[in-house]
Simulated scan of single mutants.
Amino acid sequence: MAFRGPKVWLWRWRRNPLKRRADSVEAWVLLAAWAVTVLAGVLAGLTTARTVEQGMARERVEWRPVVALLTEQAPGTADSRARVSSGEQVWAKVRWSARDGSPHTGQARVRPGSGVGTPVTVWTDPRGRMVTQPATPSEAHTRATLVGGLAGVCAACVPFVAGRALRSRLETRRIDRWGYEWARFGPLWGGRTTG
């Protein structure tokens, strides 16, 4: 196990006679990469979360429930309704009128065996198109947090990977330079270096 010695804070920026310009460049590249990674992740996450939450709040304001009527017999039988749990539903074709009076049709979830003309509540957007029920404020907050977190992680990956690639390139260049300097000054030492 190698001895590392005491941990020194900010060692990359301290004065050292053995420190080369490449070491300073690498230190600043690392600092910049971490700063941009954190900044990009936080900004992207917060912006995305706010946008998602505002969009869902707009949906809660604009989307309205409308009473639609079944245009066909729902699959299943009326006796199956007694045996089926209250949460089980089937798809059936329904018809409703938009705010401007234009007729619309679509598929909605209804109880099995429901007859033609049975009223069903569906949600519509301002154009009268069927949409899902809008998210509650707490559901919207949860979704916005999850989407914002994912967007933040994805955005932070870009500068992080770029910083790692640049650091790898600097390290390769530094090792090549060491090899060049060793080849240049090694023979000047004279004598044997191996036993």
Results as ranks from 00 to 15, higher is better:
M1V: 09
A2Q: 02
G5M: 05
P6H: 08
P6N: 05
P6I: 03
R12G: 15
W13Q: 00
W13L: 05
L18Y: 10
L18S: 08
K19H: 08
R21H: 06
D23L: 09
S24I: 12
S24F: 13
S24G: 12
V25H: 01
A27K: 04
W28L: 15
L30E: 03
A33G: 14
A33I: 12
A33T: 13
W34F: 15
T37I: 07
T37N: 08
V38R: 02
L39E: 00
A40S: 14
L43M: 11
G45F: 13
G45M: 13
T48S: 13
T48R: 09
R50D: 15
T51A: 14
E53A: 12
Q54F: 03
A57E: 13
V61F: 07
V61E: 11
E62A: 15
W63S: 02
A68V: 08
L69C: 00
L70P: 10
L70D: 07
L70R: 04
T71Y: 00
Q73P: 01
A74Q: 07
A74D: 08
P75C: 07
G76N: 06
T77D: 08
D79F: 05
D79N: 04
V84H: 09
V84Y: 10
S85I: 03
S86W: 07
G87D: 14
E88W: 10
E88T: 13
Q89L: 10
Q89F: 04
Q89N: 09
V90Y: 11
S97Q: 14
A98I: 06
T105Q: 10
T105V: 10
Q107M: 12
V110H: 05
V110Y: 08
R111T: 15
G113C: 03
S114L: 09
S114T: 12
V116R: 12
V116P: 06
G117D: 02
T118G: 06
T118W: 02
T121E: 10
V122Y: 04
V122F: 08
T124N: 01
D125F: 01
G128L: 04
R129D: 14
M130T: 03
V131I: 03
T132R: 14
Q133G: 00
T136P: 00
E139M: 01
H141Q: 08
T142S: 06
R143E: 04
L150M: 11
L150C: 07
A151V: 01
A151Q: 00
C154H: 00
A156C: 06
C157H: 01
V158Y: 05
P159K: 04
V161T: 12
V161E: 04
G163D: 06
R164T: 11
A165E: 10
A165P: 01
L166I: 11
L166W: 08
R167W: 00
R169W: 15
R169I: 01
R169S: 13
I175E: 12
R177T: 12
G179S: 07
G179K: 07
Y180S: 11
Y180I: 09
E181K: 05
A183P: 00
R184C: 04
F185L: 10
P187W: 04
L188R: 15
L188P: 00
W189S: 15
G190N: 00
R192V: 08
R192Y: 05
T193V: 12
T194Q: 11
